[in-house]
């Protein structure tokens, strides 16, 4: 296998996307960067709450159950028997990759596009738009919270 750094994103071991996905930018541009308080007319409350929710979900009973399932599924005879070079070939182009990173970005994408939909139904001005978004996000939060209370 010939690997050159110009030959991206495929061919190398480093995952090197040409442009950033929503999951790549979401954490950064909602949490980082200069802020001004005065004059701002738009609210992102809906989106902010949703990304916090996504983080809470990570450390939940659901996560534990998912890892229990993954452990149960693991075929020890197969995985344990392989040596490293074989494993590398086996995992090329993501088989397992989709599972983890996909799960997290899946949550985020669902949440973000969900809040899009809520807001696109409204045709009014930004200041009034947040209301449906934050309403729906707190509804979602309630749902999630109650289900995790049952769990624990």
């Amino acid at each position: 296998m010939t690997v050159t750094t110009n030959q991206r994103p495929r061919g190398g071991y480093l995952d090197r996307p040409q442009s950033s996905s929503l999951a790549d930018v979401l954490d950064i541009i909602l949490d980082k960067g200069l802020v001004i308080d005065a004059y701002v007319r738009v609210s992102l409350v809906g989106i902010e709450v949703l990304t916090i929710d996504a983080r809470i979900v990570i450390a939940s009973v659901d996560t534990y159950l998912r890892f229990a399932e993954a452990t149960n599924r693991l075929d020890l005879a197969q995985t344990g028997g392989k040596d490293l070079p074989e494993m590398i070939e086996g995992m090329s182009e993501g088989g397992a990759r989709g599972k983890t990173s996909g799960a997290l970005s899946g949550i985020k994408e669902a949440l973000t596009s969900g809040s899009d939909d809520d807001e696109e139904d409204e045709d009014e001005r930004p200041a009034r738009k947040r209301q449906p978004a934050s309403k729906s996000s707190s509804a979602r939060r309630r749902q999630r919270r109650s289900s995790s209370e049952e769990d624990s």
């Binding site: 541009i29 909602l30 960067g33 200069l34 802020v35 001004i36 004059y39 701002v40 609210s43 930004p126």
Partner: peptide, 12 residues
Amino acid sequence: VLPMRFGMLVED
């Protein structure tokens, strides 16, 4: 460039 956080909307 010093990037601003997403969502900074101003009127003036």
